[in-house]
Each structure stands twice: as structure tokens, then as C-alpha cells.
Design a protein around this nucleic acid. Structure first.
Lengths: 226, 226
DNA sequence: TAATTCTCGATATAAATTTCTCGATAGACG
DNA sequence: CGTCTATCGAGAAATTTATATCGAGAATTA
């Protein structure tokens, strides 16, 4: 249940399975080699990437391998090629459209993240129940009433729903998004969503993150005392 | 390098190592049993938790075990006890103070998350370089000039630094926080921070998260086609 | 042109995590 | 009061993930 892996058809038609950990590291590599490219470099090696990001070179190589790119001994990879390979693998070269629901402070902040477009996501509209917000534009995106959500999702073939509503409304919104036919949900509400298992759900739970940090801090203190 | 585990002295003085994955799941359990408690329930079983959160019951049991709590067969755990055990284990019962640096839209949104206090973090002040923001109050928190940051961190014994500045300024801010003596950094800037290895750094990289979602979506489409 | 060095790619090893299996015990029920 | 069921707790197995090792090929240098 809930294996943290993703399947995809590889270049030759065979399928590969990629770990969640790899998926989280690939964007880091991409960002780094982009910087290198802007600095004028043309080649990268896994050793170099690993050194810059405090990671094991072997691991970098394994991660990079899943994109299907092949490097050359001594040289490594060509910066542009590797960047393109990662972009393609992660699906950034085929942007998907998304709706954001819940224009609170976090939702509004996300609407301002215009760089999402570079990462395969274009937020085309926002939704809220607050009449004071409906009809306005925030960071250039129109805020619409929640009622029309499912129909619009279906009509516009929206693939991604972003939930930035309070906990109490999250499940309801998720249901509306699923009803409309989104295939993935990016959930910023700190709660577990009950949706069909084939739905792609990604929980962005700040409290969970904080918990991990908090625990490490506590363990750290105890460790110093003892 | 970078083992994702945390040590802590257990109840009897021995040390346990907890995986990052467990650390991320514990808050989910806590939230669920809190809901149960508010609904009037007094007892929970791992089976029940697992069922509600779509997780394996055995895994829930293993996770819960690290808090040191002991359950009773047939009954499970007492709701209040389990909640308290998780809270203590995660360090939520001993709040740490933090500074937030970078009062952009995301930073301002985080300043409004008053619930952080329940999770062991109290943001006591914010910092920014923008003179138009300095001196104002946002969500009740004062915005101060960046210059005084290290001194104030040291004087007030601030443990946590939250970075919500643009990428270009992140490393610089991290250095200031470290200089002041914070022990943990919660980094929302999409970049790798170079700090001493004993520092606790938690990266909250939305683009990486989005990448994972994007890739799964792409893999999903391919899978359906083929 | 040959030696050297660096890095990829594949294989093997080790570690960690999740899952499974087995008693043991407490509560429910007749 | 005895039987039955559900759940904990602990140990073992299986799966995943990360790390280390080795050989081969390409660029640099002498």
C-alpha cells in the first residue's frame, strides 16, 4: 500500500521504477547544472554535482541514470543535455494546467510563484468562497466562485488541483476536484485526504516538517546534555 | 553523509534512532487521535489509525513504539496518553523560539500561522532588508532590519531560523543565522545551503515537491497510453 | 603515440525500512 | 468461569535504498 515509487515507460519501452528520494534529488541537480550553464560551463560530472550538493557521487550517478542519459568517461555529461533530460523526465517540458482553491495568505503567495510554469505547472485560475475575493485578480489570476469548480475542471481538462483551504474544507474541495476529473492534487491543508487510490496526491504538510525539525532539535539538546 | 536519522535519549537512558519517514508520520497520527479525542473517543488502536490514514497497522505500531508508550492488547492506547507521548517525543511541549527572515508573500503567510506554537515553534520576530517593511508589524510580529540579526539571535538565544528570502540572499542569511548561533534552519529558499554539518537544516523546496508530482503525472499518462 | 588519470557503468555489498509471522494478553460473550 | 477475538510486542524475512568496488573508455599530457 502506498509504495513511494513511480513507474514510467523508459526510452525503449521497458518500465522503470524511481524512488521518491531520487525524485526529490533530481530537481536539485537540475538547478545546480542550470547555474553552471549560466556560468558558462559546458560539462558536468557526477563527482562535481555531488561535491556541490553534499551528496555521494555514486548516488548522483544512479539518480541521473533514470533519465536515460548516457555520459562519457572523463567528460561526464553535457550541461544542456543533462538539464533537458531531467526536464523531460520530470515532465517539465509539457506543462500541465492547474486550479488553486483557497485564496488565503498561502494561496495568494503561491499565485505569485510565476516560476511554477518552468516546472510544468501553470495555475490558470483560483477559487474561493469569499464573495469579497471572487471576481478580483490576484497576481494576475482571476478568483472565481467555488460553485463552478467541477464543471470548469472538466471543460478545461485541468490536470492538477492545489488545495490551500483550511482543514475543515479540504476534503470537500478534494471531492469537487476529483469530481471534475483532476488527476493530481497538491494538498497544503494539514489533513489526510480520502480519494480514490489512483489519484496522485502530494501532501505539503508544514506541521509535519516542523515536527521533524523540532524533534531533531530536541534530540540534539538531549544528546549534548547526556 | 547526511544520514536521515535522529538520535535521542530514550526513557531509560539508552538511545534510539528514528527514521525520517517515521518522523513524518507521527504528526499524522497525532492529528488523527486529536480529532478522535475531540469526538469523544478514549481509546485507539494501531489498526484504526492505519485504516484512517491508509497505512499499514504494523508500521503504525512500530512508529508509535519509538515514543516509548506501551499499549494494552485488545484495547490499544489511551487517546490522551498517546497524544502526549507523541507531543513529548517530537518536542512540542517545550517550545523553541525562532526568527523569520524575508517578509515576502510566503514569509508573511508563515507569520500568520499562529498554530506553529502548538508544534514547538514560536516566531518572535521577522527580519527584512526593505526599509518600507522594517518597523511595521505583520500578523502581530515586528519586522526588524537585517543588520541586527546575529546579535539578537545570540542575545535572545534563538534556536531556529526560518529563511524565506529569494534564492540569491539565502546563503548570506544562513551565514548570519549561524553566526548568531541558531541550531536549526528551516529553509524555504530553493537552494542548497552550505553550513556546518552539525547544523540541523530542513529544506522546504516547493519546486522539488512539484517535480515529484509532475513526474508522477507524466508517468501516469504514459502508463495509460502504453 | 603511449602512459596516465578521471569518470562512467555495472556488479556486489551493506544498511535501512517495511512487511510478515508468531506468541501473549486483555476484554467480550455465552 | 471458559472460550473466542482483537490487539500488542517482538523477532524474522523480504524489499528498498544507499554505498563501495571493479573494469572499460576517453581526454590530457609527455
Amino acid at each position: 500500500m502506498g509504495k513511494d515509487v513511480a513507474e514510467l515507460s523508459g526510452g525503449g519501452g521497458e518500465r522503470r521504477v524511481v524512488s521518491e528520494a531520487t525524485l526529490r534529488r533530481l530537481p536539485l541537480y537540475h538547478r545546480y547544472i542550470k547555474e553552471l550553464g549560466q556560468a558558462g560551463a559546458t560539462g558536468v560530472s557526477c563527482t562535481k554535482i555531488g561535491g556541490a550538493l553534499s551528496l555521494d557521487p555514486t548516488q548522483v550517478r544512479k539518480d541521473v541514470e533514470v533519465t536515460g542519459i548516457v555520459g562519457r568517461p572523463k567528460t561526464g555529461y553535457e550541461v544542456g543535455e543533462l538539464a533537458a533530460a531531467i526536464e523531460h523526465f520530470l515532465g517539465w517540458d509539457s506543462a500541465k494546467e492547474g486550479f488553486l482553491v483557497g485564496v488565503g495568505s498561502l494561496g495568494a503567495a503561491l499565485l505569485g510563484y510565476h516560476k511554477f510554469a518552468e516546472y510544468g505547472l501553470e495555475i490558470v485560475a483560483a477559487f474561493d468562497t469569499d464573495p469579497a475575493k471572487v471576481g478580483k485578480r490576484i497576481h494576475g489570476k482571476y478568483v472565481l466562485a467555488l460553485e463552478g469548480l467541477p464543471k470548469l475542471v472538466r471543460r478545461m481538462h485541468i490536470a492538477i488541483g492545489i488545495i490551500t483551504v483550511p482543514v475543515g474544507a479540504a476534503q470537500e474541495v478534494a471531492d469537487l476536484l476529483v469530481e471534475g476529473g483532476v488527476r493530481a492534487i497538491w494538498n497544503f491543508a494539514p489533513t489526510h485526504l480520502n480519494v480514490a487510490p489512483e489519484m496522485i496526491v502530494r501532501n505539503e504538510d508544514l506541521y509535519c516538517s516542523l515536527a521533524a525539525l523540532s524533534q531533531k532539535l530536541r534530540a540534539n539538546v538531549k544528546g549534548m546534555k547526556g
